[in-house]
């Protein structure tokens, strides 16, 4: 779980960096998106690794949750879990489920659209299309609302998951306070950046 988590976290950083280009420059965003969409190494090596990482993380997460639930077949009559642990650390499954639902919508919006454009309808590569497609996706306020909610839950997921990945890998030493602060900063900044990009395009263009 921790290795796949750290892999997906590194991908998030790349993703937010490219998305942020859409706020800075339309042309830069189009150029970067076209590179990502047509580079054979990214398309046929990195993309399958990424999709495998996503599937692995979710499947293993569900399997672990099921195993962990079965380790206490009779529940407590009274629980006071708030006295010893944070809500999000106990409910990673639920934040994960919302993120999974978001990924379903995200794949439908972008990935399936890309596959259809490039391989099924065999349209001519058009480097100028990406920005307008992105902006179009942030038109519907309901969709933007779901996008924001998903990234708030991603933030909560990361707040526990990022630093937890290091603990699972055995990293708990004099550098741990720095790692925890860096992980916490990342967990706030990256989802907030995604939210900012969505709201920026929604309110700027509609």
């Amino acid at each position: 779980m921790s290795l796949s988590a750290l892999f997906l976290i590194s991908f998030l950083l790349l993703h937010v960096a490219i998305n942020f280009l859409s706020v800075i420059s339309k042309d830069m965003y189009n150029e970067a998106s076209h590179f990502m969409g047509y580079n054979p190494i990214i398309q046929f090596v990195m993309q399958p690794i990424l999709i495998s990482g996503v599937i692995f993380h979710f499947v293993l997460g569900f399997v672990l949750e099921f195993q962990n639930k079965s380790a206490r077949p009779v529940p407590y009559v009274m629980k006071n879990s708030a006295a010893n642990s944070s809500w999000i650390s106990r409910n990673m499954l639920y934040s994960g489920l919302v993120i999974l639902a978001f990924l379903g919508v995200h794949f439908y919006d972008f990935w399936i659209h890309e596959i259809n454009y490039k391989y099924l309808t065999d349209q001519v590569p058009n480097e100028a299309r990406y920005f307008s497609e992105l902006v179009e996706k942030f038109k519907d306020p309901l969709r933007v609302g779901f996008y924001v909610l998903s990234f708030v839950l991603l933030m909560l997921h990361l707040l526990h998951g990022f630093q937890s990945a290091f603990q699972s890998l055995g990293v708990n030493n004099k550098f741990s306070p720095i790692i925890k602060k860096a992980a916490m900063t990342f967990s706030y900044v990256v989802p907030l950046a995604f939210i900012f990009i969505a709201l920026y395009h929604h309110f700027t263009h509609y």
Partner: peptide, 24 residues
């Protein structure tokens, strides 16, 4: 079950056993 690093064990341990042991 498996450890998901909630830290509840450390908080409730009457002898103050630290999570650093799990990392070790």
């Amino acid at each position: 079950g498996a450890c998901t690093n909630t830290g509840a064990c450390e908080a409730e341990c009457p002898k103050g056993i630290s999570l650093t042991n799990i990392a070790r």
